[in-house]
């Protein structure tokens, strides 16, 4: 066993699956931080009422839908010329403006209104506008908590049509001097409602008066039982941007290693002392997304052989809280898979799991070992992944390398 080898993870096979009970201890970084839990885990307030968590195959299929929609959005933003040959064949870009929700994996609990009432919302770095379902509602799905009721809040106000926030909204329209918003996600989910403002309570000591968000009165789609969604994208309306004057620009989150643990989301927090940094890249065609430059990958302490142009010509890398599995350019993924498999020869191979094609059966092993995988970013930042970031485990007999290829990038 390579217990002391810094290039290997050695772990008990029994620890691969999450505990069925919530084992979270307080993981927040300070008093204004929100607790982050997995939407379908035992710590989630949505857990008890849910109609059954999605299967691993469903999670991965929805993940692929989110990835496809990110690619479509990027392609649509970059497309300046319509290819007449494609157009004549009836090929067209999708009309959806947003990206698919995926499985909305992580949720936070926030307070809205005065007095504050708590709502469990998905947090998403891939979109900007925050919203909750509101009453009166013409078309709302069933959610975890009672709907947000503007009449019960002394600090609620509608955003008038002439307000800057309304005019800056991509989808803002005016109706009876109310600013109407619409967000259409890439999986056909949609929310429509009034743009409003009210006090957002992050903790007893951290409030954000006048927080602008959507008060959804017509909401359909794959929102599960979440009370809404909070966007942490880069545009002005996002929670990250609105919180900047109070807490400073930026935010930090930590996602727990297991769905039975918890992490945190903290606005404006200083970076941890041990953080390694890489440049945050802006793409004006896709101003919501946080781009960075991935330049290499190490497996078992050795950098895999991939020309740096494979990453640089791939269009960059987006970091996304709502995509489950990291997608790599095909040549990079092929090299990663090959290197990983070379180290895993002692284990029985297992069938593929949806988009994950490199899987192992750890049945009969008390402990197991896998090579460490590290992502290398421009500027020298190295992210040596936790072992829960290397394997996606559906069961002990099917633990898969948690990466996938972007497929045919000429398609």
């Amino acid at each position: 066993a390579r217990t002391n080898d810094p290039n290997w993870h050695v772990f008990r096979v029994s620890s691969l699956l999450p505990s069925p009970a919530c084992t979270a201890s307080k993981a927040t970084s300070n008093s204004s931080a929100l607790s982050v839990v997995h939407q379908h885990g035992p710590c989630s307030p949505l857990h008890a009422r849910r109609g059954g968590a999605p299967s691993h195959v469903e999670i991965l299929e929805r993940d692929q839908a989110r990835v496809n929609s990110i690619h479509r959005k990027v392609a649509a933003a970059g497309a300046s010329v319509v290819d007449p040959a494609r157009a004549s064949k009836g090929v067209s870009l999708p009309a959806q403006r947003g990206i698919s929700l995926g499985t909305g994996n992580y949720i936070v609990s926030v307070g809205l209104g005065t007095p504050a009432k708590q709502y469990s919302v998905v947090f998403d770095t891939g979109s900007d506008l925050s919203w909750v379902q509101c009453t009166p509602c013409s078309d709302c799905y069933q959610q975890n908590d009672p709907l947000f009721d503007p009449a019960q809040s002394s600090t609620y106000a509608a955003v008038p049509c002439g307000a800057q926030e309304c005019q800056e909204l991509d989808s803002g329209t005016c109706s009876s001097n109310k600013c109407r918003y619409e967000v259409a996600y890439g999986d056909q989910s949609q929310t429509d409602g009034n743009l409003v403002r009210d006090t957002l309570t992050l903790s007893a000591s951290a409030k954000l008066p006048g927080f602008v968000f959507g008060c959804g009165d017509s909401n359909t789609g794959l929102f599960g039982q979440a009370d809404g969604l909070f966007g942490l994208g880069r545009e002005k309306v996002s929670l990250a941007s609105q919180g900047a004057p109070n807490y400073g620009p930026g935010f930090t989150y930590c996602l727990p290693s297991s769905s039975s643990g918890n992490g945190y989301l903290s606005l404006g927090d200083a970076a941890p002392a041990n953080a390694q940094f890489t440049a945050m890249v802006t793409n004006s065609d896709n101003p919501s997304f946080y781009y960075l430059n991935l330049v290499g990958i190490k497996v078992g302490g050795r950098e895999i052989r991939v020309p740096t142009t494979v990453f640089s010509t791939a269009g960059g890398t987006v970091i996304d809280s709502g995509t489950v599995i990291t997608r790599l350019p095909p040549r990079a993924y092929a090299a990663l898979r090959s290197a990983f498999a070379r180290y895993m020869g002692q284990y029985k191979k297992a069938p593929a799991l949806s988009i994950l094609d490199t899987c192992y059966d750890f049945t009969g092993h008390a402990t197991a070992q896998i090579p460490k995988v590290a992502l290398l970013f421009e500027g020298g930042a190295t992210m040596s992944l936790d072992f829960t970031g290397v394997l996606y485990v559906s069961q002990v007999s099917q633990a898969c390398l948690a990466f996938a290829s972007n497929g045919d990038d000429t398609s």
Binding site: A27, S29, I70, V74, N105, Y106, T125, R234, P249, G250, F251, T252, Y253, C254, L255, P256, S257, G261, N262, G263, Y264, A271, P272, A273, N274, A275, Q276, F277, T278, A279, M280, Y290, L292, L294, F311, A314, G315, G316, T317, V318, I319, D320, S321, T323, V324, I325, T326, R327, L328, A332, A381, M383, L385, D386, T388, G389, Y392, A402, F403, N406
Partner: peptide, 30 residues
């Protein structure tokens, strides 16, 4: 484009340092 998904981000404190236009990764963040 490549996408850095949330599985790989687990246990890292991921800091979006907007003021300095950089993203940081702190191991063992939670």
């Amino acid at each position: 484009i490549a996408i850095l998904g949330n599985t790989q981000q687990k246990t890292f404190a991921v800091a979006y340092d907007v003021a300095n236009q950089r993203i940081g990764f702190g191991a063992n963040g939670c």
